[in-house]
Write a protein that binds this DNA or RNA. Structure first.
Lengths: 213, 213
DNA sequence: TCAATCATGTGAAATATTTAACAAGGGGAG
DNA sequence: CTCCCCTTGTTAAATATTTCACATGATTGA
């Protein structure tokens, strides 16, 4: 059980926890059982206090004078993030991006099971893709509770994103990942994350350009 | 020419500029010619001062008493970010993710042209994918300058990411996007961005879990 | 032309995050 | 058992970012 202190947790901390997991899993694969915040910090390119502080939001996972047991720490971080279980997801929009995500089997590996796929294109409805029958989004409201769908993944064109969001909200989904390049409006209690990897390309372009002025 | 003040620019600002572009382009499509920071702020779910301050790093793009001319602002932001031109990219690792990116034609639309694809798998070398011949990464060093490749995209398995990075560095690439779930080491003058959309899934899982404690 | 209005750009105040510094505590050698 | 070493967890200081508040300048209408 994670010994959670209920302080406000910076969003940046959550992002770094994801990095720590990644690095810790690679360390484990290489046979490291124990690691100090100092060494982990170097591997993640962050400050070691940062790591200790990030972890302190959730509990005390280390042993003074020793460091952190890698496997244990991975487990603790996953518990803290709430990814020590399977999350069932509904995907809306089986276009390029949607199809790519359905094929991308890492979802399962990482604990996110895409259990249903929706699309409003009549040509697609009824067809099977990656052993999932494509269903009309109007059925979301009835299927979501039946199937226990909790997270919605929007992969529609931008002008359909809001409609997809409405369907998800209506179906009582608890959180949304939006891959469509458009902002959406949903009730405040439903968290939304926007994914657009062009952000990162822009960041690189900017940094390169900056260096050369 | 962007009237750039050389102050340090927060990374978060770059991320928001990408959001502004997205929202502005949708506004333009809907026939809005002019917009105030206040209205844009609401559409982006940020504070209006934030927008004015973000833009102020790069120049003065608005008209007092009026607001911003949407098309002009888009152009100015793109200039500021250095994305008012085509960037040529080299992709390494034609697996699931790499193939998906090669098929994803938005790259071209957004000004990032994947001009060459590399993979060290002998079965893949020589084959054509999306009208690109897959080449052995050892040829990067000779092809990069010839073709003017500037940005490297790593889509290898995690244990191959560092080797891919080394090839890119050796070929004098100027920036790297790493989709592989592993940290890489490169000289400090080469910017690296890590892309992993599971970060966002973790963030959603965390926020949902938090709400229910 | 002048006043009234409006929204920008910006310096100063309020927050938030990161880093540094160290006290607290576990482990091992003698 | 005690002392010494090592690394954590945490408080306090330093930085960075965001928000507020308003002076500045452009536009419009009388």
């Amino acid at each position: 059980m994670s010994q959670m202190k209920s302080e406000h947790i910076p969003k940046a901390t959550i992002g770094r926890l994801a990095v720590y997991i990644q690095v810790l899993e690679n360390l484990l694969r290489d046979g490291n059982d124990v690691i100090s915040s100092e060494k982990l910090a170097r591997a993640c390119s962050v400050n070691s206090s940062q790591i200790r502080k990030d972890l302190a939001y959730f509990g005390e996972f280390g042993v003074r004078g020793v460091g952190y047991y890698v496997q244990e720490l991975i487990t603790s971080i996953k518990q803290s993030l709430g990814i020590d279980r399977i999350w069932k997801c509904a995907l809306i929009g089986v276009g390029n991006m949607g199809a790519a995500l359905l094929r991308h089997h890492d979802f399962e590996k990482r604990g996110f099971h895409i259990a249903a796929a929706f699309d409003c294109d009549p040509d697609k409805i009824g067809r099977e893709f990656e052993s999932l029958e494509i269903v009309c989004p109007t059925h979301l409201k009835e299927q979501a509770p039946e199937m226990g769908l909790e997270i919605g993944i929007i992969t529609t064109p931008p002008d359909r994103a809001q409609r997809a969001a409405n369907h998800l909200v209506d179906a009582n989904i608890r959180g949304i990942i939006n891959f469509a390049p458009a902002r959406i409006n949903v009730p405040a209690h439903i968290p939304v994350e926007y994914v657009d990897f062009f952000d990162h390309l822009y960041a690189i372009a900017f940094q390169i350009t900056l260096g050369n002025d």
